[in-house]
Design a binder for these strands. Sequence first.
DNA 1: CATATGTCCTGAGAGC
DNA 2: TGCTCTCAGGACATAT
Length: 278
Amino acid sequence: MPELPEVETMCRGIRSIVGRKIVSVAKPRCRYRPIHIHPSLPTIRKRLANQRVTQISRLGKRVLIHAGSQALILQPKMTGMVTLGQAPDPDHIRLRVDLAGSSSQQVLFWDRRGLGTVELLRESEIHERIVAGRLGPDALSISYADFAARLSATKRAIKVALLDQKLVAGIGNLYASEMLHVARIHPATVAAKISAPKKRRLFECMQDILLTAIEYEGSTLADGTYRNALNDPGSYQNQHLVYDRAKLDCPSCAQGKIVRIVQAQRSTFYCPRCQLSR
DNA sequence: CATATGTCCTGAGAGC
DNA sequence: TGCTCTCAGGACATAT
């Protein structure tokens, strides 16, 4: 499940296309239900043809390919990934961006489950259509004061709050469990009731874990879905302390067993011994 | 307004 | 072995 570290890795992996000219955009025919693409592919093709890629950026868990005062916005959601011509299989390639040049290259949007989306927006539309009312500050650039204030303003369980992209953008189910474990906060703690020192600890763990996960090029889970731009797996999964480790010994205290609970229909993993209820 | 729930999708793995 | 069923969860639409 691509979260901030995985999406950041995708961005870094395709950043070498900056300066290249887009020749065409195509949707390979496949037997699966088409993913959501807006506007229509012919329109996207028309608007991007012969435009030069000026920048690659990340907005929360989206990859943005900027070209000609527009951005092609790829949202991987559950099983999507953005690569340089590589894919686990040819069957789930949902979009192909062909680039000009001596070493012609392609950016592929591969998505097994097809929950991902593709959108082409003018730069002036991005804020209104993507950010406003939906995306909070990025988890890697939010200030501690803002982070603390936002946690204080919600009565939800901290684990559920961390998944809310308008509270802070970029955290998903996996890293939420990991950062709460390292910060030694019980996932069911009401966000507003977390003490200031613990909030500070969580803030630091959030940055630390996300940055470290980026260094490891993200987490590739058992289904092997997420890969970097060259189709190689990440390696942060080897650093997971609690995620998907139910019933195993806690690596932090070596005494408790990791427990799986469900919060807001999502799995949460934690160590009851390390992460005491308040 | 804040928060909760249903929905989309495919394939891995469980269970029989 | 082969079938059916459940589950995984990001983010939006809709409901409370």
